[in-house]
Computed example of a mutant assay.
Amino acid sequence: MIDFHCHIDLFPDPQAVLDEVDARGTYVLAVTTTPKAWRGTKKLVGDRRRVRVALGLHPELVAQRHQEVPLLCGLLPGARYVGEIGIDGSPPHRDSLELQKAVFDRILTECAMLGGRVMTIHSRGAATAVLDALERQADAGTPILHWFSGTMKELERAAQLGCWFSVGPAMLRSRRGRELAAAMPLDRMLTETDAPFARDGDSPLMPWQAYDCLTDLEMISGIGRSELASRIRDNLKQLASYRAASR
């Protein structure tokens, strides 16, 4: 199982979640919402083989935490994965849109200077702005658009730019989410939960529930669950080989 976008540190008992991740053999990318959270999450994760930690500054927090951008840039040389980063254009965050764009550009520029990073990217209500930035910084690394919710035209542009996509059970509950997933290149798709924000009823999704979305993907694609799981694993291996080659 693969959960390529999960906020491990924000669970009520992250240690218990990590222990269960180990027991189930789940591969997890633990994203962070602020640079200050990265070191703490790395300490929490320790030397677990299947869990990696991404260095992030969530766009929803940029207005309050943009002073941490220099800290993020200083930590980047030691971070193989970057996220959650991006731009949020939804109504509560439009007042900080220009600041978000400037911060995202700065992070992409720094990633490019370091030879590129694997990046998990937030683009709610701002897909075109995110794609414009990625086009300006084509050497920033491998962009993975998490829970993509843009238009079909924006998705086509993202695919042409070489973007990857991560989808999860919460995204595929909606008809729109399933339509977008059906148009995504399967050889650049990974699974995610966005837990603990994404939920399963009254409870947060857990990393080992990322593959719950395979039932919907099977209906969308006509490809069986086991074959889909195999392809997702192959995609992760391919992504790891890209990362190894760029170091």
Rank of each mutant, 00 (worst) to 15 (best):
G89W: 15
Q238T: 14
T128Q: 03
R24Y: 12
R48W: 14
A240G: 04
Q209R: 10
Q209L: 10
G224H: 08
I85D: 00
R231K: 14
L145I: 07
D132I: 00
F104D: 07
L72Y: 02
S246K: 04
E135S: 10
D105S: 04
R199I: 13
R94D: 01
Q209D: 10
R94P: 08
P91K: 07
R39P: 06
A126H: 00
V53F: 04
V17N: 13
L161D: 07
Q67M: 00
D19M: 05
D22M: 03
I8T: 13
I220L: 14
D202T: 05
M1F: 02
F11S: 10
V103H: 11
V118A: 11
S221L: 12
C111K: 01
L131S: 09
E227R: 14
T120G: 05
W38V: 03
I87E: 02
D132V: 00
A183D: 04
G162A: 03
E218G: 09
V130D: 02
G222C: 07
A63W: 09
R24S: 09
G56K: 02
K42T: 14
Y242C: 00
T191I: 13
A170R: 12
F104S: 05
A23H: 14
E154W: 07
I107H: 03
L217I: 12
Y211H: 14
I232R: 01
T41R: 08
K237G: 10
L228F: 10
C6D: 11
E110F: 00
L108T: 09
D200K: 05
G83W: 06
C213G: 08
L214H: 05
F104R: 01
R173K: 15
D216P: 01
V17C: 09
V28H: 12
A63C: 01
S203M: 12
H93W: 14
D88W: 05
K43A: 09
G40E: 14
E154H: 08
D3E: 12
V17K: 11
R225K: 11
S149Q: 09
P185F: 04
A158S: 09
M152K: 14
D132H: 08
G86A: 11
R136W: 02
L172W: 11
P92H: 03
D202V: 00
A138C: 01
A30S: 13
H66D: 12
E154S: 11
V53N: 05
T215G: 06
L61G: 00
T33P: 03
G86I: 15
G86K: 03
G78N: 08
E227S: 13
P14F: 03
L75T: 04
S230R: 10
V62H: 00
S174L: 02
T191L: 15
M219V: 11
I232A: 12
L29M: 14
R117Y: 02
T41N: 09
E20A: 10
M206I: 03
